[in-house]
């Protein structure tokens, strides 16, 4: 089994220790740093497979680290931040971060997110161009433009279909309002999150048993949506 190397960028030493220990216990190799500049250097010099990045670093912003690393690497990056920093989270996700964790988080949650991000990364690398996308009971047939839940066909509008396809291709990943609108409407996507919410409400009424307890597409409040994996 291949053990991934994870770069931890975190300025609080106790949290750095706790995360490092959790990951080592789980079988990953760990590299740690508290500085942004050092993080960029390590990401390039060491065989790093993914990065955990704290947004509030002493020397320069986490967002700057992400920006520099994304210039040459598509490695999964999970943002770690405080609760009231929605703006920074959205900015980081739009810049190509894969997921975010809000402090305080548990070891279990951390490991689950890391596995999710790595799985998503490998699937993407393996050229996820399958014709039929599956999530539990849900099947989306790209050739025939049809969606099934179990045996039953679900009739979607063109936009609802595109929206669902986007989530089926990005299972497990947080998609921000901005990135969804961009994928649906192209370059001039604007920022009509209100219309997106209404579209999502329509899709949920067709997919979910209870719209306030969705099984497939969950709301990430203030950020966007995420399709959970089966």
């Amino acid at each position: 089994m291949y053990n991934e190397t994870i770069l931890i960028v975190e300025d609080d030493l106790q949290i750095q220790n706790f995360i490092g220990y959790t990951l080592e216990e789980a079988g990953y190799f760990v590299i740690k740093t508290a500085k942004g500049a050092e993080a960029v250097r390590l990401a390039a010099a060491e065989p790093v497979d993914m990065m955990l990045l704290d947004m509030g670093l002493p020397d320069f912003d986490g967002i700057e680290v992400l920006h520099q690393v994304r210039e040459w690497s598509q490695m999964p990056v999970i943002i770690v931040s405080a609760r009231d920093q929605d703006q920074e989270k959205v900015e980081a996700l739009d810049m190509g971060a894969d997921d975010y964790l809000t402090k305080p988080f548990s070891a279990r949650e951390l490991l689950a997110r890391i596995r999710l991000a790595l799985r998503h990364y490998y699937r993407m690398a393996g050229n996820g161009g399958e014709d039929i996308l599956v999530n539990r009971e849900l099947r989306l047939d790209r050739n025939r433009h049809m969606v099934f839940r179990g045996e039953e066909e679900i009739h979607l509008t063109k936009l609802e279909y595109d929206l669902l396809a986007l989530f089926m291709e990005n299972q497990g990943k947080v998609l921000t309002y901005g990135s969804i609108l961009k994928a649906l409407y192209g370059k001039n996507y604007g920022s009509d999150t209100q219309a997106l919410r209404a579209l999502m409400a329509g899709l949920r009424r067709k997919l979910e048993k209870n719209t306030a307890k969705p099984e497939y597409i969950k709301t990430e409040i203030g950020i966007g949506y995420r399709m959970t994996e089966g």
Binding site: I15, N17, S106, A107
Partner: peptide
């Protein structure tokens, strides 16, 4: 304040959870 309070709490919670596990 929020940063200075939350960060050590996160450390305490994470570490004690670790010891539990």
């Amino acid at each position: 304040i929020s940063h200075d309070l939350r960060t050590p709490l996160m450390g305490i919670m994470g570490t004690s959870e670790q010891i539990m596990d």
